[in-house]
Amino acid sequence: MTMKNTVVLISLGGTIASLPDSSGRAVAGALSGKELMDTLKIESDGQVEVITLFQKPSNALTTSDLLQLRTLCLEQAERPEVAGLVVSQGTDTLEDTAYFLDTTLALTDTALVVTGAQRVPYAPGSDAGPNLRDAIKVAGSTEARGAGTVVVFNEEIHSAASVRKVSSYQLNGFASPGVGPLGFVDGDEVRLNHRLQRSSTIVPGEQLPRVDILPVAIDASPALLEASVASGTQGLVLDAIGRGHIPPSWIEPLGNAISRGIPVVVASSTHWGRIAEVYEYPGSLAEQVSLGALKANHLNARKARLRLMCALSGNTPIEQSIFA
């Protein structure tokens, strides 16, 4: 029987892999995965293999990149000696990558961890080394197998479905509002205290379609919604207020979009709490649902967008059940 004793690090770039340029500013992704491991002097009890897939700041990652990453993860997870995978990248879109992988991969016997850093590796007090060491430790543990994609950051383990970037620069940059971490890394100990119920896996197609997120605010104009539809979006996610509400002036163009076959998903812009049809007035969630809008329930807009894109790209019916 082959022992699962190998962790594969897939490096995408980001702050964690930065070097300074002549201006003193950081060049995200300047280090390859091997250079990153060597710079941080990462040691592990088990074998660690390194693959440099990209060397990008995370704002430059594309949906095509995500599909390529998914394929690589599948290939590596099929190797019997691989206990877990670590994806390192920039923090700006880290939660997006983690949730995309959680949505599209049903790995039952391979851990999948995403991590990054808030401070460049050459800065005093950088979290690059500690986060990467902890991520490799979690990926090599039996506790993380079958837990879905997790984010390891600042000695905490978070579910991809609930994790959010909560600070632009502090070391405790990620949290799971209202839920809390799944577990912790304490020295050599990896502890998962609980697991969240995962949504069903969606197998994406070869290309993810365009889906737009529309932010809601007081008296926001419906012109943005109309322009999105007119310019060819294949889906809409409304980053609504409160329990899922929009300005009354949005209802007519929303109904027009739905009647044209464009799926619309409603999420809440709050940090925590499910949307719900508890009010009855113009622009309420109840009115939107009556027109055919879908509820993102517990997902924020960015994650709901990814899930809708995956469903649209494959053979998954676009109905409420995909957001259960």
Rank of each mutant, 00 (worst) to 15 (best):
R145T: 15
L224G: 11
P177T: 00
P247V: 07
A135P: 02
D186H: 10
V190F: 13
V237F: 09
G242D: 10
Q234K: 15
W250S: 03
F184D: 09
R210W: 10
N193P: 00
Y169L: 13
I157A: 02
V185R: 13
G205T: 05
Y169T: 15
V163M: 03
A139M: 05
D239M: 09
E189I: 06
A144I: 09
F153N: 03
A139H: 07
G173H: 01
R191K: 11
T233A: 11
S221N: 10
V229F: 08
G125C: 08
S159E: 06
L236T: 12
D134N: 15
Q234T: 14
L171G: 04
I213C: 02
S249A: 15
V152N: 10
S200H: 13
P222M: 11
E156M: 08
R198I: 02
H245L: 03
G232A: 14
G255S: 07
Q234F: 05
V152R: 14
P209K: 04
V237A: 09
S168I: 13
P222W: 07
G205N: 09
Y169I: 11
V179Q: 06
V151E: 04
L224T: 12
A240R: 02
S200W: 03
D239C: 07
W250I: 07
G180L: 06
H158P: 05
E155N: 15
A230W: 11
P248F: 08
P248V: 11
S167E: 07
T233Y: 10
A123R: 02
S200C: 08
G187T: 05
Y122N: 11
T201N: 06
N172S: 15
L214H: 02
G255A: 08
S168N: 14
P177R: 01
A135D: 07
A139Q: 06
V185G: 03
A128L: 10
R195D: 03
A230R: 15
V203Q: 13
A160Q: 01
P222T: 13
G187A: 04
P130D: 01
P248C: 03
Q234W: 00
P215M: 01
T142G: 12
P121E: 02
D127S: 04
A217N: 08
A139P: 03
F184K: 12
G242F: 08
E143Q: 15
D134W: 13
L192H: 04
R243N: 14
F184N: 09
T201S: 15
I213M: 03
D219Q: 06
L238E: 05
G183C: 08
L224C: 08
G180D: 04
A160M: 05
A223S: 12
V203E: 12
E206L: 06
A139G: 03
D239K: 14
H158W: 00
H158F: 15
R198F: 00
S159K: 11
N193E: 13
H158Q: 05
P181G: 05
A147P: 09
V138Y: 13
R145S: 14
E226Q: 14
V203P: 02
R210P: 08
I218G: 01
V166L: 00
I136L: 14
V179L: 03
A227P: 00
N131G: 05
V237Q: 09
S126D: 03
K165A: 02
Q207M: 14
R164H: 05
A217L: 09
S249L: 13
